[in-house]
């Protein structure tokens, strides 16, 4: 079954925050992750995010892990590739043309932790915020409503389109199409009989959707939002704290802290 949303319904501090606050928080954490290159700082950041998720959102690591697995190949790649290219510094292993340095390993760890913390920063938002609140937050922060609606519809139609894609694949397989066989070029060509009907179906769906949306009085003028956003004291506090932390981080970074010295 296709999961349509990462949202996990819980009664928690983070869930109760205004989606705009969470959006800001998420961007802030993202920024911190990009600022520093020291593996210790990034490790602290990653650990901090996982703790926030556990304590403030009551989402255990086990729920996060399946989503982390998705980027695991990238993380492992960062971990392996950085040491190979960082050839100066304290040499640990030197064999034939391969030189592995302490700095290289540290850099590998740092970059994989950076990837992890950036992704968890976005997950923090997606796992604690319903998609409609997210879209509403964007609209209330100045995004045009029709763009917000477009985003919301795109998100809601993912499972339907995935379902159509699976049906098309089955129909073409029943006509003898073997997707697994052949080299890369042949494999890509084999997706043409799947992509064409999928694109046509998507266009048809979009045409019908536009009629349905028009028929439901879209574009009448001032609209009500059934869902209200409440920016409370709590949100002000969290946002304030986030501003302070981000400023401090930027100051420290400007002063040269938290950066890995490479020889």
């Amino acid at each position: 079954m296709i999961q349509q949303t990462m949202f996990i319904r819980k009664e928690s501090f983070l869930h109760s925050l205004d989606p705009r606050t969470k959006l800001f928080l998420s961007i802030g954490l993202f920024l911190v992750g990009v600022l520093f290159t020291d593996y210790r700082v990034l490790m602290a950041l990653f650990a901090g995010e996982v703790i926030i998720l556990r304590v403030a959102a009551r989402i255990p690591f086990s729920k996060l892990f399946p989503y982390l697995k998705l980027i695991l190949p990238l993380v492992v790649m960062a971990l392996l590739i950085w040491p190979l290219f960082q050839r100066t510094g304290t040499v640990l292993v030197s064999y034939w043309k391969v030189i592995i340095t302490k700095e290289g390993i540290q850099m590998g760890i740092a970059m994989s932790l950076r990837l992890l913390s950036l992704i968890v920063a976005t997950y923090l938002l997606l796992m604690t915020t319903e998609q409609r609140d997210l879209v509403l937050a964007l609209v209330k922060s100045g995004l045009r409503y029709d763009f917000g609606l477009m985003l919301a519809i795109a998100l809601s139609k993912v499972p339907a389109l995935a379902g159509i894609a699976l049906t098309i694949m089955d129909a073409q397989k029943a006509r003898g199409l073997e997707l697994e066989k052949g080299n890369i070029v042949e494999k890509v060509r084999k997706y043409i009989p799947i992509l064409i009907p999928l694109i046509i179906s998507a266009i048809r769906l979009a045409e019908a959707l536009s009629i349905a949306i028009d028929s439901r009085a879209f574009g009448r003028g001032r609209r009500t939002y059934l869902r209200e956003l409440h920016f409370t004291m709590k949100d002000a506090l969290v946002t304030g704290m986030a501003v302070v932390v981000i400023s401090v981080c930027m100051g420290m970074r400007a002063a040269g802290y938290g950066v890995m010295e490479l020889p």
């Binding site: 998609q131 919301a152 139609k157 959707l209 349905a212 439901r216 009085a217 609209r223 009500t224 059934l226």
Partner: peptide, 25 residues
């Protein structure tokens, strides 16, 4: 029906029309 539904929940789906009409909550 697939081409007429586009919300993430039953409630949103039902609210979309009257929201556009600007009716009170």
């Amino acid at each position: 029906p697939e081409s007429q539904l586009f919300a993430m929940s039953v409630e949103e789906e039902l609210a979309f029309g009257p929201e556009n009409l600007g009716l009170p909550r």
